[in-house]
Every structure is written in C-alpha cells, then in structure tokens.
C-alpha cells in the first residue's frame, strides 16, 4: 500500500506574527518557516506503518511556491521515499488545495491519504474533509490512533466528550491530531541523504483545475489587548478582588 502525506509550509509556531503597516496582510517576510506540526505527525504515522511492513511507499506532497521544497526535504529526511511539489504562486485556500490534491491522488492511487487536522497559519481544519468528499471516500478526522487491518483501517478520533472509533475501507482520508504519535528527530546525515531523493515538480496549471481563491481577505489586525491586570499579594487579596471588584464569586 502506498501512503500519500500532505505537508504544508507554515510560519514556525514560536514566531510572533507581525502585520503590515497598511493592515492588508500579515508580514511573514524573513520569519522562520517549517513543516506544519500536525503534518509532521502525519509523516511519522506513515513511516511507522511502512516500518511495520504495512505500507510499501511513503510519498510526501506539498502545494505552493518552490520554497515548499524545504518541508518536502524535511519529510524525506524523516524517511519518506519521494516527494511531489505542485508549484503555484496562487494564494491557496482549502477548497483549491483539496482539488489539486485530488488530482495528485488520481495520479498516485495511494491506499491511504494522511493530512494534518489543521494548518497553524489559517487554522481552517478543512482540507482533509474536503478532499475525502471530492474523492468520494470515507474520512477519519482528528485521529489519535490508527490500526491497519485487512483492506481497512481502524481509527480513534478525538471528539467532544471523549473518543470515537471508526472502521474505514481503503482508500480513505485521515487527519492527524498531535497526539497520534511523537515525530522523530531529523538527524543531520539524513538531511544530507534527503538532498539526493527525488522531488517531482508539477506546475499546478498542468492539472487544468480552477484553484483560485474564493475568499477575499479585506484586512488583518491584532485582537484588542486586554486591559492590564494587577498582581495580588495573597489568596485573601485575590478573594477580596474577585468578590468586590470583579463581582464574579
């Protein structure tokens, strides 16, 4: 079974994102970039399945500018066999990404497709479900465990109030929660080796798919600051403030 893993290039989770002076967009020029954390869990899960003899090949795919090669190299250094870059300068949104991923799936015919549950830049959490819908296959979202059986998988999903277990016939789409696994560290020699692994590049236009944005960004802003608080010196003072000032207890 071949596994396809979608990896997005995003601003590192530790970066404090700035806003352009005109408020039109975020300013991420020069910011540290990397693989979306949830997608690292997705790659890790695919590699573990391969290492247990349950998958034959792990293919990483990323959509965006040529800069996305760095996250594909990261996936290759973790152990992915090969990588695909779908290159475009278009501002991509989940629906367009799902359409382009569908075209990749049709070419590659993977048995299992793993995405992250959300990208930490747009925080949309949509692409996996959209891809499953477009492919006409089942979906297992926000998964924290995955088991491969004969022709199907069993997944544990993190839901409100607990967990849920589903069986999905393959091919299927799943989206990884951070609790799915602990991604391995990439060792330097592997990063060197990854440079030799192939990255196949398509121009997104080749697919003849309309992936243009449907949502227009009007402006961005930092949320209003909370009014500065105070430090109290004792539990007694805290209770006093909560009773008299905040009137909340």
């Amino acid at each position: 079974m071949k596994i396809l893993v979608a990896v997005k290039r995003v601003v590192d989770s530790n970066v404090k994102v700035r806003i352009k002076p005109d408020g039109s967009d975020v300013d991420v020029a020069g910011a540290k970039m990397g693989i979306n954390p949830f997608d690292e869990n997705a790659v890790e899960e695919a590699l573990r399945l391969k290492e247990r003899g349950l998958a034959s090949e792990v293919v990483a795919v990323s959509l965006g500018t040529a800069a996305c090669q760095d996250v594909l190299r990261h996936a290759l250094a973790m152990g992915a066999d090969r990588a695909i870059l779908v290159e475009t300068d278009l501002q991509l949104q989940p629906l367009g990404i799902a359409k382009l991923l569908k075209a990749v799936v049709e070419r590659e015919q993977p048995g299992l497709i793993i995405l992250g549950k959300q990208a930490i830049d747009d925080d949309a959490g949509q692409t996996g479900q959209m891809l499953a819908a477009l492919l006409g296959v089942g979906q297992g979202t926000f998964i924290s465990a995955l088991e491969v059986l004969d022709g199907e998988i069993r997944v544990t999903r993190e839901i409100d109030g607990g967990t849920e277990t589903l069986a999905l016939r393959l091919p299927a789409v799943v989206t990884a929660d951070l609790r799915l696994n602990e991604p391995r560290y990439v060792k330097l020699p592997n990063l060197m080796l990854a440079k030799k692994k192939p990255i196949q590049t398509y121009n997104a236009a080749e697919f003849g798919i309309d992936a243009s944005p449907r949502l227009k960004q009007l402006n961005v802003a930092h949320p209003p600051f909370r009014k500065p608080g105070i430090m109290v010196n004792s539990v007694q003072e805290l209770v006093e403030k909560l009773r008299v000032e905040a009137k909340v207890v």
């Binding site: 601003v11 989770s13 404090k16 994102v17 806003i19 975020v26 949104q93 989940p94 629906l95 930490i120 830049d121 747009d122 925080d123 949309a124 959490g125 949509q126 959209m130 449907r214 949502l215 227009k216 960004q217 009007l218 402006n219 961005v220 802003a221 930092h222 949320p223």
Partner: peptide, 30 residues
Amino acid sequence: AMLSDVMTILGPKTYVRPIYAGSVHVTVES
C-alpha cells in the same frame, strides 16, 4: 469555500475569524 471558527458576522458574506492561533484576526469576504 468554508469559513471556520467565525467570531463576528459583519455582513451577509463578511466575517472576522482567528488565524495564527488567534494572534491575528482576519476579515474575509466570501
């Protein structure tokens, strides 16, 4: 398209929602 985690509905097709872990609010029009 879909809008996730909408915090404010400004108009019939205009919304405010959080991005970058809520450190930025974006206004988008569908």
